Amino acid sequence: MKLKLLYSDLKSDLDVIEKELAIAVNSSSHLLNEASLHLLLAGGKRIRPVFVLLSAKFGNYSIESIKNVAVPIELIHMASLVHDDVIDDAETRRGRETVKAQWNNRVAMYTGDFLFARAIEYITALENTYAHEVLSHTMVELCIGEIIQIEDKRLLDQTVRDYLRRIKRKTAILISASCELGAIASQADEKTIRHLKRFGYYVGMSFQIIDDILDITSTDEQLGKPAGSDLLQGNITLPVLYVKNEQSIYPLLMEALDGEISEENKQKLLSEIRKSDGITRAKQVSNMYLEKALNEIKQLPASSAKKSLQNIALFMSKRKF
């Protein structure tokens, strides 16, 4: 089953979000318009706006109000991606040229900054100032996460806890904010907001761990970029952390982190990690977070939105690519 089928009933509202995003990335600068539109047209699952919309279903749902949360959340996600591509010197994303590849690093960085600024503009349409606090805190944590990821690059002397803290900031916090802000915007009760916030956090952790596993286990075609890209960029992910000192892996890993690994040895390294128990152990941690997410969902009142959140969580944490 395709992910979009799990929230097909939101199509008309997602169309509203898509049109609003096109308006949001428009500016008086032709170059900025081109770069932002390039990023927008790269598509994506729009999973964060979906979490906003579904979480809003637990309160007084109005797309005209909820779009003022869904749009900034997606803009922040887009901005973080374009900045990520600069940091990682990435040429492609989802099979398309990145903004930094099509233009340059300076255009990419200012495009990301512009999208962050637009996100702040949009959230001010909500009168609830706590929503502003949640969004600004999320942006701060995202930026800290990016810096920590740079500091941790090629650093083998890091722990599983270091990794988990990093992906909390990199991924989980924005999905958590998507759920929390959707519920806040629809004036859901405090208990529901807390459960949705925690659900988003746990789903985000599970999702990122699976993403890091797939970077090693999937093909170039499935990923839309070379397999093992994270590793070659110096990002030590959970499956690698578990097996970094194994005799068949350590020498090849050091070659990869030094940026001197041949294509043949890269494939050998990926093969060795795939055969190791690092993949299985990482999946166990992902499943632990998934179970926590599903437990939060159980506390919510029965509804179609509850079922959709459950199904999406299961899909995201069990996907093969």
Rank of each mutant, 00 (worst) to 15 (best):
A42W: 02
F51A: 08
Q208A: 02
T92R: 05
V25D: 03
K191T: 11
L156M: 14
D157T: 13
L300W: 02
E272P: 02
I209H: 03
V71K: 01
I210D: 00
L232F: 07
E91S: 13
Y250I: 00
D189P: 01
A185G: 11
M1D: 14
D211G: 07
S271L: 11
T237L: 08
K225A: 08
E141V: 04
G95C: 12
S29C: 12
I147C: 03
S28F: 12
P239R: 00
E264D: 14
K191H: 09
S178C: 12
E264S: 15
T280Q: 13
S248F: 01
Q102W: 05
L290V: 00
A125M: 11
L253D: 05
G224Y: 08
I23D: 15
I167L: 09
E18K: 14
A101E: 14
P72R: 05
L174K: 06
D88M: 12
H137L: 10
S248V: 04
K100L: 00
G182Q: 08
L238V: 11
I209Q: 06
I17R: 01
S304C: 07
L75A: 10
S80E: 04
K67F: 03
K320W: 04
A125W: 01
E272I: 03
V50N: 02
K275Q: 13
T159N: 01
Y110W: 11
F199I: 09
A256Y: 01
G224D: 13
D162Y: 06
A177M: 09
K244G: 00
A101M: 12
G95Y: 07
L6R: 12
L32W: 04
H38R: 11
E246H: 13
Y122G: 11
T129Q: 13
F321K: 13
A119I: 08
D84N: 09
K268D: 10
H30C: 05
L309N: 00
N33F: 03
I209C: 05
K283P: 01
A282F: 06
S286V: 05
H77S: 10
P301G: 08
A56L: 10
L10G: 02
H132Q: 07
V50F: 00
S136H: 04
E91K: 12
L238D: 08
T92W: 00
E18F: 02
L156E: 13
W103C: 10
D89F: 06
L269G: 08
K168M: 04
E291R: 10
